[in-house]
C-alpha cells in the first residue's frame, strides 16, 4: 500500500516532539476525522526556521507527511516554508495512494497555521498568507463517504 520511503518516515519519523519555547505553534485537524497535527517552529531573527518538531494523531500517511514536511522546512526561511505545498510533500515521499493524498493537506496547513499565529502575534504580514484562514476546516476529507 505505502512505498518504502513512506514506511520509513512512518516507522522512524523525524523531528517528533515539542519545543517548549517555540516562536510558532500550529494545530490543525480534528479527532472526528481521525487526525490532528501540531507543529512547533523555532524561528530566529533572520526569519530562518532553526528547529521544527511535530506531534500527530493519525494514520500512517499523516505521520509520514508530518515527518517529511518538518524535514523540508528546517533551515528554510519563513517565506520559503509558506511556499511548501502538500503535493511537494507527497512528491518528496515518492507518492501516496490516491485515497491518502488528502492527509498531506494537513501537513501544509499545520506549517501555515503555525506561521499565521506567529505573524499575528508579531504584527507581521506575509503575502503568502493572503487568503489563508486557519479556521477553515477544509482538510480534504470527504465527510459523506460511507
Amino acid at each position: 500500500m505505502y512505498n518504502e520511503k513512506v514506511m520509513d518516515h512512518f516507522m522512524n519519523p523525524r523531528n517528533v516532539g515539542e519545543i517548549e519555547d517555540a516562536e510558532a505553534i500550529g494545530e490543525v485537524g480534528n479527532p472526528i476525522c481521525g487526525d490532528i497535527m501540531r507543529m512547533y517552529l523555532k524561528i530566529d531573527n533572520n526569519d530562518i526556521i532553526t528547529d521544527v518538531k511535530f506531534k500527530t494523531f493519525g494514520c500512517g500517511s499523516a505521520i509520514a507527511t508530518s515527518s517529511m514536511a518538518t524535514e523540508m522546512i528546517k533551515g528554510k526561511t519563513v517565506r520559503e516554508a509558506l511556499r511548501l505545498t502538500n503535493m511537494a510533500v507527497v512528491e518528496a515521499l515518492d507518492g501516496l495512494p490516491p485515497a491518502k493524498v488528502h492527509c498531506s493537506v494537513l501537513a501544509e496547513r499545520a506549517v501555515k497555521t503555525a506561521i499565521y499565529n506567529y505573524a499575528k502575534e508579531r504584527n507581521l504580514t506575509y503575502k503568502e498568507l493572503d487568503g489563508f484562514d486557519p479556521n477553515d476546516d477544509h482538510d480534504g476529507h470527504d465527510h459523506d463517504e460511507e
Binding site: 505505502y2 514506511m7 512512518f10 516507522m11 481521525g34 487526525d35 494523531f57 493519525g58 494514520c59 500512517g60 499523516a62 505521520i63
Partner: peptide
Amino acid sequence: FIEGESILLS
C-alpha cells in the same frame, strides 16, 4: 489517543 490504521501498519 491513537489511530487504527497506524496500529495495523505497525
